[in-house]
């Protein structure tokens, strides 16, 4: 097996001042694959993503191992992290309305990502940005390059975000609810673009989502988190055969088109779910 992109062992994250850690003993290994992290709000899934980029100045991060390629993230300095962020590891956030700078043109923001990490002329960066806009299937890259974020739709904004994050050809992309702010009709389109680029360039992907349907379709493997712990790890194709009552509860609670309209099964939360489990991968 090829060397993994990311190895996480016993990651715990404690926000200072909080009575309990937000994330407890999370371990996983990521190769050139698409890994989904699913859970309800407050389960710690986004916190894991942010910890990997060390974007949590108010939290204490502890782990046995946090290895990203040759870099030990746990002991990386801020200077090293600046080189990693957006270059070797990048993050796509939920809502392009809030994650793009509202007072700068979209194209300039994309070019900036390239200028920050590579020695090149502005002209070259602009060409790169335009090529990338084309890669995310924007029909008229020159037009969109000169638009401000409020002048583009949500789906296009998210494509711009993807272009920005994949421009430096990172080894790992963390997508935190990349499509939950988008309409159903554009959601699949955006996911498909992200998926194609990630496969084509051999990038590792961590998809953080509350949506089981999404990870089922766009991930190879899924971690299910509850109260800061991973309760189950599954192959996405085998999600229906989940063993843990929490995963099964989440699947059953989802209304389905053509369902029988009987009251939906509700989750019966058990205190033992937040305890460490035996035999989890």
């Amino acid at each position: 097996m090829e060397t993994p992109i990311l190895e996480v062992e016993d990651l715990s994250i404690h926000y200072r001042g909080a009575p309990q850690p937000a994330v407890r003993n999370v371990s996983f290994t990521l190769g050139r694959e698409r890994l989904g992290i699913v859970g309800e709000s407050g389960s710690g899934k986004s916190t894991v993503g942010r910890a990997l980029l060390k974007l949590l100045p108010t939290a204490d991060i502890t782990a046995k191992r946090l290895q990203f390629g040759e870099t030990d993230l746990l002991n990386a300095t801020e200077k090293q992290m600046l080189d990693i962020r957006g270059n070797r590891m990048s993050m796509i956030l939920q809502d392009p309305k809030f994650s793009l700078n509202p007072i700068r043109r979209c194209g300039e923001q994309i070019a900036e990502a390239y200028l920050t990490h590579f020695r090149c002329s502005k002209r070259e960066a602009k060409e790169r940005a335009l090529a990338m806009l084309e890669a995310v299937q924007i029909r008229d890259p020159h037009l969109v390059y000169n638009r401000y974020p409020h002048e583009v739709s949500g789906g296009m904004g998210q494509r711009i975000m993807i272009a920005m994050m994949l421009l430096a050809e990172p080894r790992l992309v963390i997508a935190d609810e990349p499509t939950s702010a988008l309409d159903v009709t554009v959601r699949l389109e955006v996911l498909k673009i992200l998926d194609d680029l990630v496969r084509e360039k051999g990038i590792g992907l961590i998809m953080i989502s509350h949506d089981l349907n999404l990870v089922r379709n766009f991930c190879d493997r899924v971690l299910i988190m509850y109260a800061g712990r991973v309760v189950e790890t599954l192959n996405a194709a085998e999600l229906d055969r989940a063993q843990h009552p929490y995963t099964r509860g989440l699947l059953a609670a989802q209304p389905r088109i053509g369902g029988n309209r009987q009251p939906l099964p509700v989750l019966d939360r058990r205190p033992e779910w937040s305890q460490p489990m035996e035999g989890t991968a």
Binding site: E40, S41, H210, G249, Q254, L264, P265
Partner: peptide
Amino acid sequence: LDVSVQAEILNLLQR
């Protein structure tokens, strides 16, 4: 709301 909570609220509205 989360799916699990959504299920509770939808059941409530239906009832």
